[in-house]
């Protein structure tokens, strides 16, 4: 029984901080949600809707974090780097939006979209 409690406890600790590595499937549907989010972000930046854009960017930041963890456990270094890069771009977009620099936010959003594509060339099934 103690062993069980220990396992439960460690699991709960882990879930409190981040996603359990390797147990989450980064599959097509997951990616589709991210893509839709990216489109929403692009539109919100264009419309200068600060809160909506921040929301989108934050969500993407978190998603890329998950993706990064996923690939760390798969041992795919290039994918890890792309995920990191994407996350960083999502962070900087939030900065630009918050300071009302929509032009730079817009361009950064394009850079983010390109990073998506770069990773897809290797990791998307049947492009």
């Amino acid at each position: 029984m103690n062993k069980l409690k220990l396992i439960v406890y460690s699991l709960l600790v882990m879930t409190a901080t981040s996603v359990i590595a390797g147990e989450i499937s980064i599959d097509e549907d997951y990616m589709q949600v991210m893509e839709d989010r990216q489109k929403s972000l692009s539109s919100n930046i264009s419309l200068k809707k600060v809160n909506a854009a921040l929301n989108d960017a934050k969500s993407l930041e978190e998603s890329f974090n998950d993706v990064e963890t996923f690939y760390v456990h798969k041992g795919k270094e290039d994918a890890v780097n792309w995920s990191k890069e994407s996350r960083e771009l999502a962070v900087s977009i939030q900065k630009y939006v918050a300071s009302n620099d929509f032009d730079t936010a817009s361009q950064t959003s394009v850079a983010l979209a390109k990073t998506c594509k770069t990773c897809h060339r290797s990791y998307k099934k049947d492009t």
């Binding site: 539109s43 919100n44 264009s46 032009d103 817009s106 979209a113 390109k114």
Partner: peptide
């Protein structure tokens, strides 16, 4: 291209979707 926009279905659309350099 980033400023060539049209509001459609509540979304700001442009020729290059979310891409384009």
């Amino acid at each position: 291209h980033l400023k060539t926009t049209f509001l459609h279905d509540g979304r700001s659309e442009r020729p290059t979707v979310v891409y384009g350099e």
